[in-house]
Each structure stands twice: as structure tokens, then as C-alpha cells.
Design a protein around this nucleic acid. Structure first.
Lengths: 207, 207, 207, 207
DNA sequence: GCTTAAACGAGACGGTACGTCACGTCTTCTA
DNA sequence: TAGAAGACGTGACGTACCGTCTCGTTTAAGC
């Protein structure tokens, strides 16, 4: 008996080459559940979202969901921040243009109805669920910090960014200010905000 | 019969000159409940905190709590961010010193065990409870933005801050970066972080 | 300090000649409360009747009620079965006529909207409250059994009732059958029922 | 989706040939709950009996109970008057012997510690809960009146009972007098009482 | 074609907390 | 001291959702 059949294999371990005996999982169910989650998050808050409702909307059942995800938080996390998110770095020619582009992309991801509804809830559950904490930071790191390291290094060597500034600093500034602005101003962040904030950050990291 | 006796008054609007008929609320109960809440939040997460437990620890009862607060979230909010918070502005002589002081104070408030445990939960409930959203922003605005306006104006006139930067911008930068850093790095923000971040923000808002 | 001021004096001990210092009780309040109770019992069941509601309807307050009665059950008991009930015995000339009259009177008392609503509730509380048990039986005994003793004795001596039949037997038959009929048939007991039941009881106690 | 899965089925209508999808109810839980209820009713009154306590004693949870019964009253009703009650008619050879036997059986059922504790409470809740009213009368009717109809008919044809007397009359007399005697005399009804009452009823229904 | 093993839907399960309600008492102010 | 008003502790109510489990059924892969 393989370990995979004892410890349920969540989506992240797809590279394990188990013999895959028995009835294979219906590929469509996972997608339907993720779609239903996003839909429902556009209609109600994270707290008001129940797994039963998701299952019903997706036309499936609760066990099928818990076979795929560790819990509600993990499901929502994957639904709102899919792994497919590209991490291509911006290249507008100027530092401020790039920062502006980063802000725009961050804002685009976070101001989705689903993200707006989910983020606070996910943040709330991070405290009690270390697994989720890791998962969220991992995604955050992958998307932003990871690819950013090279960018920051290059910019530093060009002299556009003063030494000492790390990728984490930049990511923190971009994500932190976007997040708080969304919380306080409520998803209504226009181009003006992006420009003003980009200017602030760019000046902040310049030599 | 006054309206106040029908719709329970959660937040005492002290300027209303009601005759205050009937047995007055035991002032000590509210305090004991707030104290108990802060204590318990140092021991468990927001989600694991139950109203029953708070009541028991405070030596009172659930109805007594629900007479005073609309729900768990509101109680926690008031316990963690009391109205008594002073908003005195820093005055170190230099802009960067002041920003550093703002970061330090924000960090001090947010890195309390109680705040660390409560914040994610509160943010999570903001989505479903507009009342709480208002209350939280109001406190945030009172404490930070409100008093900051004069500071930013003065600094702008002195030429320390470039025109166009608002108090909200500064507050957003300070709170946003602190919040995100706490989430990602987990309460372990040393003096180095404060200095680095202060430098970033200061440069960002300078002319 | 008289004992009466320590142990509150409920209605039953009115013959105690206390000095009655302080503000005398408002005589009208008791009546208003009793009236309100009867009214409300015509609109809802005993369980759905709250002391707060009674106080509001009577235009008084809860403490004023608890100063007069030991609790809800005692109040309802007195409201539904007032002490003023006369116990005059029937005298129709025939035993069967007399029994029929007893049934009619019992039915009249018990089929009041208030009585119908209150009786089950009172019976329910008898179990846990011995005081109420005593009070209810006392009233029952006063009204029915007490006066009945002489009647049964006389009838026995006339030869209308066979020896061995006691007043309690007769009362039990009359009240028991009426009570159960009310419970099962629900207050719709016509004259036919009265006659049939009177015939049964009369034959049952005849020589 | 069948209607049965929407409206919870409290009383199993066993003749309906549903496919019984989903996890079947644990048969043992229902039994344990009923047993616990009877046990607890021997120790405290109906009013002092809480669903939480029952759940704890039965080793199960409150939701599991509310899945099976509409509320406390219905649960107690079924616990105290199980559907298994036999309705075999007595056959002692004489009318008076049969009536005496009916009284004895009624008394046996009603003077159980559980029944004594529960009956008043149930009667009390009948008023506010029509469903319970129906359920109680149904059981009463099933057990007593139903089977009695044939008996009364046969006795009437033999000339033992005068025409006009119905099964309901007889049931009313037996149950009513027993019930009231229990209420007033408190469970201490000896054989003498049974005999005296049997004689009264027998004479009452004889030609 | 038959076996095997897992996925599937449905829904019951234990657990835990929620927010509400009523009781009967206590505390304040006013008359 | 009575009275009105209303807060208090107590304790139960019935509901909701979590994540797990147990059924009977379905589906693919492998012998």
C-alpha cells in the first residue's frame, strides 16, 4: 500500500508517480469546485461561504472537496490565487514605469471580487493554520519576491536602485500599500493612486 | 420610552443627556470583559476565542456581553484598539526620525500578542460586517490619519515633504508596510527593519 | 424590622397585622396584573407568556409583580382560579340533575380561554414546585371536595348514593373526566357530553 | 432529490420504499437517547431536563438529537410512551374485572417515574405545540380507544354495557380518573383505589 | 469478463460556538 | 418604602458550520 493512499494526495504532489489504482479522480470536479468558489465569493464574504454551498453549486459533494483540499481555506486560496499566475517581470524601460506596472498587476489580482472577499478571511485563518500561512507566503513569494530578486540585482548594478534594498523590501512596499489601500478605500483605486504610489516607492528605493 | 432603550446602545454616546433611568450598567463588567479578552488573545487565536470563555474569565455572563457589544468582533476590536489610544505626534527634529518613530509606534500597537492574534480575525470579519469595517477604519483614521494631516501640512510648508503627498499616503505607507511585514515575517521585526523602512518612506515622500 | 419585610408577604398572609410602614402598595396594580394575565392567556399559551409582557400590559414593572407573587405559576394560578369562586352546591332536586350541574360548572371554569391555556402549564409546573401543587390542590379541594362532603353524606343517608362513595371519588370523577375530555376534544364539549357523562357518573355512584 | 431529504423525517414512515441514500442513521443513537431520557426523568423533573444533559448521558450530541426529534417534548413523548406499547385487551371473564385490569394497566404506564415526571410537562407543551398535541392523542387513541371499540361493541351486544356508551366514554373515564387521581394523590394509588374506581365505572356503563 | 480499489453522491456524525430568550433577583433613581 | 426601569447571573434553547465517517453505487484499470 503506497503512502499516497494513506496520506491523501492533495494537488501539490502531482509529480509523485503512484500506480494510481482504482477509479481515477474526475478531473472536472476540481475545476467545477474552483469555479463555484470564485463565483460564490463574488456574492458573499469568506465567512458566509460554506463548503456545503460550494459543493452544491459545483454539483458535487463535500467529501469530493475534502479529498482534494485540506480545508476551506486551502480551497479558497487556490481558487483565488491559481498557480497559473504568470510571473513575467515588467519591462517598461524606466524604474518608475516598472513599479507602476507591478502595482497595477498586484492591484488587478487583489481587486478581483473573489480576492477582495477572500483575502481578509485567508489572512484571518493564517494565524491558526501554519500550513495555510506557508502556502500563502509561498505563492506570494513565488509571484513577487522570487522573480524580483534578479530584477532588483540588475537595477542595483545599473545604479537605478540604491544598494541595500532587497527584493523583499520592494515586494513589501508594493503589496503592503496596495493591501492597506484596498482595505481602507475599498477596491476603488484609480490610476491616480497607482501613479502617486509608484512615485513614492520609486523615490524610496532610488539612490 | 426613549429610542435608546429600544435599540440597545452599544457605544455610549456620552453627550446625550438622558436621565439614565433603571439600574445602571456595572462599569466594572465592561472593563473586566475587555481585560479578559486581551488576556485570552495572548493565549489563543481569534478563531479559538469563544464568548463563553471570555465571560467566564471576566466573571460575568454572555448576555451581559451582548448587551454591550454587537458581537465578538466588535468586542475584540474595542479590546485590542481601545479608544484611549493617544495620538500624540512624534517630534524628533528630523523627518526620518519622525517616520521611524511612527513605524515604531505602529509596530508596538500591532505586535502586541493580542493585536497579532486579533488583527487577522478582525480583518476577516470586516468583509461581512460593514459596521465593523466602519469602526475599524474610524479608529485607524482617528489614530493615524487624523493627527497626521497637520503634521504633513507643516512639513510640506517647511519643504521637507514634496507637495501632493497627503496624510493618507503617509499613513498607508507606514501601516501597510508594517502590516504586511508582520504577516510575512511574523512579529520578528527588529530595529534594522524599522530603520530600513523609515529610510524608504522618508525618501519616498521627500521632494 | 418585622418578619414580613424579610420574607415578602404574598397575598395569602394578608391577615398579618404588620405596622405597614413606608409607602403602601398600590392596590390597583395587583388587579391590573391579574387582568392582564387573563387577557394575555386568551392570546397565547402559558409557555409563551412572559412576565415582562404581563408587566408591560398591566402598565407596571416586574419587581412589582414579584413583590406580590412567588413566581409566574402562582400569578397565573390566582388569575385563572380566583379565590372569589363561590362554592354553592347545586340543588336541582335529583341526583343526576345535581351531577349534571356540577359538570356544567366545572366545565364553565375550565373552558375559559385563560383556563384552557393555563391549566396544562400549571399542571406542568406542579411537578417541580410543591408550593404550587399545594396551592392548586387547596383551591381544587376548597371548591369541590370540601363542600361536597356534606352533600355526599346527606345523599348517602337518603339512600341516593351507595355507601363507600366519598366526596373525593365524586370530585375525581367529575373533574377527571372533564379535564381529560377538554384535553382530548379541545374545549368543544356540548350539552350532549354533559348529559352522557352525568348519567355515567350518577349510575356509577348510585346504590 | 426526494422530499424526505429536504423535510427531515422525524418519525420513520417505514412503509415508504425510499432508497435510503446517504449514510444511514446510527440506530443505536436513537435508542441510547431514549434510554437516557427515561433514566434522567427518574432523577429530575421535565422542566429541569435539558437536551444537553440527555445528549451527554447518551454519549452523543445535541444536533444528533434534533435530527431525530422536533424538540424536547417530542423526544420525551416517544421515550415515555414508546410505539411498542401493546394494546392487548384484557379478558378476565367479567366486565368489572376487565375494567379493573384497564385501570391497572393505565396506572402502570402513568405511574412510571418517567411518566410521572414527564406527563405534566408534556401536557403543558401540548397547548403551544399542535404537533405534539396530535402525537399525544394519537398514541392515547391507538393504545386505548382504538382497540376498545371492538370490546365495547361486543359487550354492548352481550348486554353487559348499555347502548350509547362509546369506547371514547370508557377511555375518558378510565384515563381521566386515573390522571386526576395521580395528580392529586401523587402516585400512591393502591389496589383499593383501583377496585373502588373500577366499581364506579362499571356501574356507570352498565345497563 | 471479472476482480479490485478507489472515487463518487448523499447525508449522518461529534464537536463547538453562536446569538437569543426568559426567569427571578438586584440596584439605582424618583415619588 | 413602593414603584418604574432595566441590568444582572443562570441556564437552556435551537441553529450553523466544520471536517470526518459510512453507506451503496459507479467507474476505470489490470489480471
Amino acid at each position: 500500500m503506497s503512502v499516497a493512499s494513506v496520506t491523501p494526495t492533495y494537488v501539490t504532489v502531482s509529480f509523485v508517480m503512484t500506480t494510481e489504482i482504482g477509479r481515477p479522480r474526475d478531473r472536472g470536479i476540481g475545476d467545477a469546485v474552483l469555479r463555484a468558489t470564485v463565483e460564490l465569493l463574488a456574492e458573499c464574504s469568506y465567512a458566509d461561504l460554506s463548503v456545503d454551498t460550494i459543493a452544491a453549486r459545483a454539483g458535487t459533494s463535500k467529501p469530493a472537496i475534502y479529498r482534494r483540499w485540506r480545508g476551506k481555506a486551502h480551497l479558497v486560496h487556490e481558487a483565488v490565487f491559481p498557480r497559473t499566475a504568470t510571473t513575467e517581470l515588467p519591462d517598461t524601460g524606466s524604474l518608475e514605469g516598472d513599479v507602476r506596472e507591478m502595482l497595477r498587476r498586484t492591484l488587478m489580482v487583489l481587486s478581483t471580487p473573489a480576492a477582495l472577499a477572500a483575502l481578509p478571511g485567508l489572512v484571518g485563518e493564517m494565524a491558526s493554520d501554519p500550513t495555510l500561512h506557508t502556502a500563502l507566503l509561498e505563492r506570494f513569494g513565488d509571484v513577487l519576491v522570487g522573480a524580483l530578486t534578479d530584477y532588483v540585482d540588475a537595477a542595483a548594478q545599473r545604479g537605478d536602485i540604491r544598494p541595500g534594498i532587497t527584493a523583499a523590501d520592494l515586494a513589501e512596499a508594493v503589496a503592503g500599500m496596495t493591501f492597506l489601500a484596498l482595505l481602507t478605500r475599498g477596491a476603488l483605486l484609480d490610476e491616480t493612486w497607482t501613479e502617486r504610489t509608484a512615485r513614492l516607492i520609486t523615490k524610496g528605493i532610488s539612490p
